[in-house]
Design a protein around this nucleic acid. Sequence first.
DNA 1: CAAGGACGAAAAATCGATTTATCGATTGGA
DNA 2: TCCAATCGATAAATCGATTTTTCGTCCTTG
Lengths: 353, 353
Amino acid sequence: MAQQEAKQRRASIHDVASHAGVSAATVSKVLAGVTTVKPENAQRVFDAVERLGYRVDPLASDMRRAKRRIIGAIMPEFESEFFGQMVTELEGLAEQRGYTLVAASSRESEAREKEILARMHDWRVAGVVLAPVRNEHGPAAAFMKANGMTGVLIDRVLSDDAFDTVSADSAAASAEVARMLVGKGHKHILIIGLAEGAATVRARLEGFRAQALALDPSIRIDVITSEVSVEPLRSSLRDYFGRGERPTAVYSLLLKGTLVALSEFRRRGWHCPDDISLVGFDDAEWMQVTWPAIAAVVQPVHRIASEAMNLLFRRVEGAMGPPTARLEPCQVLERESVGSPGSGPHSGGGDRQ
Amino acid sequence: MAQQEAKQRRASIHDVASHAGVSAATVSKVLAGVTTVKPENAQRVFDAVERLGYRVDPLASDMRRAKRRIIGAIMPEFESEFFGQMVTELEGLAEQRGYTLVAASSRESEAREKEILARMHDWRVAGVVLAPVRNEHGPAAAFMKANGMTGVLIDRVLSDDAFDTVSADSAAASAEVARMLVGKGHKHILIIGLAEGAATVRARLEGFRAQALALDPSIRIDVITSEVSVEPLRSSLRDYFGRGERPTAVYSLLLKGTLVALSEFRRRGWHCPDDISLVGFDDAEWMQVTWPAIAAVVQPVHRIASEAMNLLFRRVEGAMGPPTARLEPCQVLERESVGSPGSGPHSGGGDRQ
DNA sequence: CAAGGACGAAAAATCGATTTATCGATTGGA
DNA sequence: TCCAATCGATAAATCGATTTTTCGTCCTTG
């Protein structure tokens, strides 16, 4: 029954109307749950819907409303666990409310980010969840403002004067990492990160530095950053170690940095935590199955996603008022990659101290 | 200029028409590149478009065509590198052709997979790229057939009687792994995998077994599979080692299995490749920065994605003919996790041999 | 000079739903 | 008994494009 006509063309609201012996307007009202329809007619509509296997065409349905039931999501990439989980969460939450999520990857390019946003504006999306490539002051956010779009900024942002923001509490998490490392007796720590991720990465850096120095003013903290990509970071790190610098711990402010640090350790034959300790911002599944397991800061993906969607839908429904800036707490997982300096077989206090 | 009216409502084709002093139909034709328009009028249209910042509304534009410029993508998950890259690739390819990609995660559930598909059918997508949870014979593919949808199946499929399929050449890659392990002298090899991924995983298994036995008929190959999830696999593996089984190499047919194997090695304090060798199907960035780097089969994500899109668009444009089944070659990366049996310090031939 | 094309553009139909305006029938009150 | 209010449902307008049809000119030709 439903099989044969499926091959042809799908039933429209008019087909349902004629089968039920009512007008299309009545069908629309019945399906919208309006009560001013005679129960008998409503039943005939439901029967016809059932018989024809009718389903509302979301595209046609959205035509007549100003805000369409589409949410856009723009992430810098999909390849990492963090953003992968984020998209999964956002998609589920959008679907729960009857919205369709259109996700796109800016591939770490601000130009592309803006283009995608323009295309989403063409679609007249109800709202956008944007994880900016750089920070909240980029061209994408500006475009959203200029065009009166509603949206929420996540991840690489701290606060904004136009949009709600939701991020992991990088500073607090970094302070906890500092307590952990200083508590273990580390007095020379290297921090690696990208300068580009401005707001958030700076928060991670400052959160760590402030806490570490408060605990031990004599501590030495070196910082290596790269402007844009990861590769310069790798060579800087190589130079740094090549100069004979021997920090007893490394704190990476981003996942790719953790990988770079690990591969440099490999090159030099250093082992964690005997030769050097390592903590990374951002957790990944593999980190707990390696020798040693890598200590990491876990971002609350689920909370960030659901808070972002809550805030977004509040705005979509017309909520006014100043933008809010939320920080969700992270969890710091202490694993085997962190030890006390000088406790390993190779030991070595380095050239300083 | 463009700023102020942006806040209000966007310019429609009729606004452009009246500004240019022509009809909406003419505007549509000019933008579609029809040549039967007087150059003078065409210029006026372009000017008006420029002045108003007009952009076609894709939703309204799609209303009148049977096949809409939307492509659906359904993946079992977004969290792994493979599917993350896949979505990125697919999105880029769809965009190149002026299509919008709507991606959704089936979260490894066939029921959800079918629901998503039904929703995409509601959107009247031009085509679907489906990476089925289980294989090509699931309810999702059946739904697509029953509803006359056009689509391409990827990844966990071998061939289908209705849809084009594109997968990594699992069998060939596994044969190469077999050559590698047997060549190193391994005579007792354990294979772990999920039974569920039927077609592909079976191809990986058989591809390995056939080649290994061809090279050395006396070789012992044990197989541990779990029906659905990874956890049973973990406990089976634990039991297996607990019984005193000591294969000299493990070949994992899927990424999660590689993680499980690594974590079991960890529990027992075994090191690669001294105590046991390890090869995994599917590569990940972290695998080359661990001690040791993990040997892996790399799937040609880029080729799979672009082949899938090529085939899909060919069908969207009306191409007929029997479905094709493509297998794209993988690359096997031999890394430090693979050695010769008995060469390590702990050595140990196990209880058999 | 009238009929037949050719050309360019406007008018109108269409896609599939939602929403507003309208209409007919029933009911109530004066 | 007549007008007004109420109820339920239909007709029509709308959303923003595309596509088909129609229409008016100008040109050509017998």
